[in-house]
Design a protein around this nucleic acid. Structure first.
Lengths: 195, 195
DNA sequence: AAGCGATGTCTTCACGTGATGACATACACC
DNA sequence: GGTGTATGTCATCACGTGAAGACATCGCTT
């Protein structure tokens, strides 16, 4: 059933361990942020010795980068839909479930980000969000700006909704939220030209 | 000239030290976040021994709370203007200058926030943003939700703009940014009812 | 000018962290 | 089955941090 039948299920499975660390790391980096997530707790959640982070990834930071790369790979799945409402629904749904998105944290961190981080954000968000959004708003000179504006809006909503600092936003159903957001999306597509 | 003439300027001035720590702490908590801001560096920037943080505030965390309370006090200045464009301009302008807003960090942190933090955010944002915004969108049942939506939008923009993950948003002038945001604000005021 | 409280300096401590390497054990191959 | 490599376990280290407290010095009050 498994991909390589030459490899019987093993109790010691490097790939499974790698995977477990990747998942546990993703979840904890998302929950706590990079600093507050300790390798000890990551190992514990993965059911694995923390020292294996060093073995498989080299360091905590390298694990973090691997987690982000993994999220990038996951982001490439799913169809290309150039409709702002569909994009918004997909993004907000993914981020509502605590599906672990350390990238969202990178985007939402006010600290000036290095080129490496900008590049990662770009790669994760381009295929499912920025690309489709650019196409949806038409290809004016400010298409890129408006696509980024969409993402900024979604990040702002998702983050404030998640942390509970905005009680109404926190309590509202996703359905009603999307209904309230819809006019903004239409306005975004129309652009500043249309009165 | 100073408030209390009975107190001549002193080389050892507790109030000035307190103020210096508050300002340096505010700046560093904003730049680095709570974790990465060390009391040693705060002391250094304030030109003061780090141990004085313990003396005047009790602990690093207490200093953080004092910084937030200070920001709250500052937020109460300025007129009450129930116009979404004016609010947006004021907020974005304040946050564009790195005037130190640790509260923005609290709002933008995806980690579920305790009741204490929610309360602080509320107190800082109510007088200048949420209150006026609620009034601007009319007093329907969803006024609160839409006011929070405005704040979420502004936070998303400000934060992504500051960290550089959104290049177009980062490079655009505030003037042009406000022009692009204006249609969204109008849509927000109109609400989901109006087609 | 002397005493005393307020203010500031310096050293030291305890703790949690990420990292490292020696050692143990399971699995695959012959 | 024996052997070597892959995989996992454990003890320990070095470092940076927040905190605490002993000590020094300033300046107000009388």
């Amino acid at each position: 059933m498994s991909a390589t039948s030459s490899r019987p299920a093993r109790k010691r499975d490097a790939e499974a361990t790698r995977r477990a660390l990747l998942d546990a790391g993703g979840a904890l980096f998302d929950e706590r942020g990079y600093e507050r997530a300790t390798i000890r707790e990551i190992g514990e959640r993965a059911g694995v010795d923390p020292a294996l982070i060093a073995r498989y990834f080299g360091s905590k930071e390298a694990l973090y980068l691997a987690v982000l790369a993994d999220e990038e790979r996951a982001a490439r799945r799913g169809p290309f839909v150039a409709d702002l409402h569909a994009i918004a629904e997909r993004v907000l749904t993914r981020w509502d479930r605590s599906d672990s998105s350390p990238v969202r944290r990178v985007i939402a961190d006010p600290t000036p980000a290095g080129a490496e981080w900008r590049e990662i954000v770009r790669r994760v968000m381009e295929p499912g969000v920025l690309g489709p959004a650019r196409e949806a708003v038409g290809d004016g000179a400010d298409a890129e700006l408006r696509a980024e504006l969409l993402l900024a809006l979604l990040v702002g909503i998702s983050v404030t909704r998640a942390n509970g600092t905005m009680p109404a936003l926190h309590d509202v159903s996703r359905e009603e939220l999307l209904r309230q957001v819809a006019p903004l999306l239409d306005a975004l597509r129309a652009g500043p030209g249309a009165e």
